[in-house]
Design a protein around this nucleic acid. Sequence first.
DNA 1: AATATATTTAGACGTTTATCTAAATATCTA
DNA 2: TAGATATTTAGATAAACGTCTAAATATATT
Lengths: 99, 99
Amino acid sequence: MKLSILNMPFKALSDPSRRKIIQMLKEKDMTAGEIADHFQMSKPSISHHLSILKQAELVIDERRGQNIYYSLNTTVFQEVVNWFFNMTDRSGGFENEKD
Amino acid sequence: MKLSILNMPFKALSDPSRRKIIQMLKEKDMTAGEIADHFQMSKPSISHHLSILKQAELVIDERRGQNIYYSLNTTVFQEVVNWFFNMTDRSGGFENEKD
DNA sequence: AATATATTTAGACGTTTATCTAAATATCTA
DNA sequence: TAGATATTTAGATAAACGTCTAAATATATT
């Protein structure tokens, strides 16, 4: 079965830690270590969450020296927002929707 | 651990079948059987998905005779939309956010 | 080159999830 | 009340998920 492009972002956003990371990155770009410092979880676990957000293209990573900086990818984020907008508006036709 | 009220709706929306159900219910109220007819899945599986959407308070059910009608609960839906709005706007302070 | 720091990868483990079939419950109709 | 229809509940199973510790990789510093 062909899965919508939206499936990975929705799955990624279904975990509260990952939503918290997204909220943190909304404020400013952060390194993996800085992000991990805001959680009680181990660093490998945070790294795994970051990897899922990256696969979903909700975040972008970029190495600068020893650190890897994470930042929001607003493009894919906007597509998820659009799914909700389509849900909110009154024009018909779910058969035509992408997801 | 105290989990945000938003956790259940986000989890509920992480499954593509459940998102499709939401889209169908956006168009019109439907019985469990009508909904199931749009899927290849067994009826018990659809019933399970409906139960999760109901627990998340994204849908409401109401028996009318032999049928059980499902409809959208726009209230909780709006709260999820608000999460995205808060993410989109530029005012700071993720520390104060609820989820 | 050796050591320290930052981060990811690998592998294991228990939990949750999505699905199925079979059985139970609720309602309607003859 | 018996039988048909609509839906859910129960129980099983395989796959996906979230987490951990230990090890590997990449970069910087001395």
